[in-house]
C-alpha cells in the first residue's frame, strides 16, 4: 500500500502534548496526506468520533485523565469503531508493554520520538503489514 493510496484516510490522533499535536498535524496532514483530526484527550476523542468516523486511530499511551489503553477500550464500545485499526505511540518501549498493547487490540506500537518526515510512511508500512504483507517496499 503506497502512501498515495492512503491519501485522505481519516486519522484521529489523540495526544495531550500541544507541541506534539502541532508536529503530528504537519507530519500526518501536510507530509502524509491524511485527513487528520487532533484531540487533546481521550474524552475529547470520544466526543468527535461520531462525526469524524476515523479509519485509523493514533493513541498516545501516557495521558492525564483517560490514558491510551482506557481510551481504546472506550472507543471499542462504539459499534462503528469495533474494527478500526488503532496504533499506540509511546516513549517507553518494553517488549512486555508492546505485547500488552497488542493484546488490547492495537495493530502496532510506534516508538517515540517519531520522525515527522517519515511518520506517514511508517503508518503506511504498519497498515501494509497489518493487511498481510511485510515492511519492504
Amino acid at each position: 500500500m503506497s502512501i498515495d493510496k492512503l491519501s485522505g484516510l481519516r486519522v484521529l490522533c489523540v495526544e495531550d502534548d500541544p507541541d506534539i499535536r502541532a508536529i503530528a498535524e504537519l507530519a500526518l496532514g501536510d507530509v502524509g496526506g491524511f485527513d487528520v483530526k487532533l484531540c487533546a484527550s481521550g474524552a475529547e476523542a470520544l466526543s468527535v468520533v461520531d462525526d469524524f468516523q476515523p479509519e485509523l486511530v493514533l493513541l498516545d499511551v501516557m495521558m492525564p485523565g483517560m490514558d491510551g489503553p482506557e481510551t481504546l477500550r472506550a472507543l471499542r464500545a462504539y459499534e462503528s469503531l469495533q474494527s478500526t485499526p488503532v496504533i499506540f505511540m509511546t516513549a517507553r518501549l518494553q517488549p512486555d508493554e508492546i505485547k500488552e498493547y497488542l493484546a488490547l487490540g492495537a495493530i502496532d506500537v510506534i516508538p517515540k520520538p517519531f520522525d515527522p518526515m517519515t511518520l506517514g510512511e511508517q503508518i503506511g508500512g504498519i497498515l501494509d503489514r497489518h493487511s498481510g504483507t511485510t515492511g519492504y517496499r
Binding site: 502534548d17 516513549a91 517515540k112 520520538p113 520522525d115
Partner: peptide
C-alpha cells in the same frame, strides 16, 4: 523527563 525523552527526537534533538 519522560516527555522530553519521547518528544525531543521528533523536534530534531535526538
Amino acid at each position: 523527563l519522560h516527555r522530553l525523552a519521547g518528544s525531543a527526537g521528533t523536534f530534531g534533538l535526538p
